[in-house]
Design a protein around this nucleic acid. Structure first.
Length: 297
DNA sequence: GTTTATCTAAAGCAGGCCCT
DNA sequence: AGGGCCTGCTTTAGATAAAC
């Protein structure tokens, strides 16, 4: 439902206040510039609708008043859960940090480990295709021009379907998360250990082969001066470590006087070089404790 | 008995991900 | 483009095993 009439939009916003949970998305114009403008606010209140016909498309291009109205009545409203995918992005336009009761499916998806949710990307498109029967979702409109009017049919379709995908993904993620947490609570230490032993051999096998393959692919790509092929991109990374001698450092500090003072870590090597002199030095010890598992023989 | 090698964990940092 | 979080690389410490 594409809506441009101010009063109509406002009246729907007021009606939406009675609903517990809304699936929300936005589209922005000029997103590559320093001053992006919000173009559409899409809202779905019926998660079971899968054709997009029940998604509200509020046209808010250059309508700061309408955006403010939505923020005041919906975004700041504690009693309504607002679901976004990567909410951080949309919140830039919809009230920022002061908003209440915002839920992000992207953040939830990231907390679920790969062996439970085996997808390489956590984009809305990937998650939708993984969880639902929607396949080959076209995301071309995402990078389209949302500043033009009238909006193309494709754009409106894309905009309304995003909320549908969002609601579907949300429901599947919640189910998965619930199952995961229940399993976590119910599984015994014994079972965890047994499972570890059960898959340890495969893991060792795969891990070693993966490392072997990676090293060799890297080597061959370097030998052939190949930056990229159909499978990998070889990215170069330079790390500069700046070094000086301790005498040079002392000289500098003497020149600058008290303006330079900071603590440095005395590594094992430095401690060795200092020898007995270490006892004469005023030091502070910071202790960190960590735990690791060892095999029982 | 001492040095050297190997492994795990942590911290700092650069680059990548996600959205439009 | 751009902001916040995450991943992965690198370095370091500390524990243990192997070598001298």
């Amino acid at each position: 439902m594409y809506l441009t009439n101010k009063d109509e939009i406002k009246s729907i916003i007021l009606d939406l206040r009675d609903i517990d949970i809304l699936w929300v998305d936005t589209e922005t114009a000029d997103y590559k510039t320093k001053t992006p403008r919000i173009s559409l606010i899409q809202v779905l209140a019926y998660p079971d609708n899968i054709d997009g016909s029940r998604t509200y498309l509020f046209d808010v291009l250059n309508q700061e008043e309408l955006v403010g109205y939505f923020v005041d009545h919906i975004m700041m409203n504690e009693s309504i859960t607002k679901v976004f995918h990567n909410a951080k992005y949309d919140l830039r336009f919809l009230g920022g940090k002061q908003t209440k009761n915002v839920f992000c499916t992207y953040e939830l998806a990231k907390t679920i480990p790969y062996h439970i949710l085996p997808v390489k990307s956590k984009s809305l498109k990937t998650l939708t295709e993984y969880f639902t029967d929607f396949k080959d979702i076209d995301k071309n409109e995402q990078s389209g021009d949302w500043g033009v009017r009238p909006l193309k049919k494709n754009q409106l379709y894309y905009a309304q379907m995003d909320c549908v995908y969002l609601a579907q993904v949300y429901q599947h993620l919640l189910k998965l998360d619930k199952i995961m947490k229940e399993n976590q609570d119910n599984i015994s230490l014994e079972d965890l250990c047994k499972r570890y032993r059960e898959i340890e051999e495969q893991w060792l096998f795969l891990d070693s082969e993966i490392k072997f393959l990676k090293d060799n692919i890297k080597e061959k790509m370097l030998d052939n001066n190949l930056e990229e092929n159909n499978y990998f991109k070889l990215s170069e990374r330079k790390t500069n470590t700046i070094k000086t001698t301790i005498q040079n450092l002392i000289r500098l500090i003497n020149e600058k006087g008290n303006s330079i003072d900071f603590s440095i870590n005395l590594t094992k090597n430095i401690q060795k070089s200092l020898g007995n002199s270490l006892d004469d030095l005023e030091t502070k010890v910071e202790t960190t404790i960590s735990y690791s598992l060892k095999d029982i023989k």
